[in-house]
Amino acid sequence: MRQLIFAFCIGLFPFAANAVEPDEMLTDPVLEQRAREISKDLRCVVCQNQDIDSSNAGVARDLRLLVRERLVVGDSDAEVIEYIRARYGDYVLLKPPLEPATYALWFAPIAFVLIGVFVGGGLLMSRRKQEAFEDLGSEDENTVSEILRQNEAGDAS
């Protein structure tokens, strides 16, 4: 399904490109590795839900080149990301920054786990009292064994 969007990209941009290409890569493997990592956190603006590292869109290629250019100039990872963010906004960050608007998002998993601990703990505490063993009266015992006898044939195999 993902590739449906590729078709869309090809329609919007002139040169059907590919994910990272050799001519984009930096010779310095450390820098290149950093570029790849950064690319994986940046969203391709035309291809929904895809990072620019794997996107085939032309604009994704331009962005990849830009990321590498900034790295060569000496930007830190954060600076590169900030550079792109300044132009495209928070929307391009696949990993939303921790800020008031996303507190709810980032703390939700922790909250869910805490709720779980709370609920589970409460349940465990409330259920822990020892159960009293009360034998059935002989009349009940008879009723039960009669029913059991009736049902014996049901599954005997």
Binding site: F133, D135, L136, L148
Partner: peptide
């Protein structure tokens, strides 16, 4: 034994 007792109680309740 404990498990059987539980089940017996359920059988009674159902009946």
């Amino acid at each position: 034994q404990a498990a059987r007792l539980e089940i017996k109680k359920r059988i009674l309740a159902t009946t």
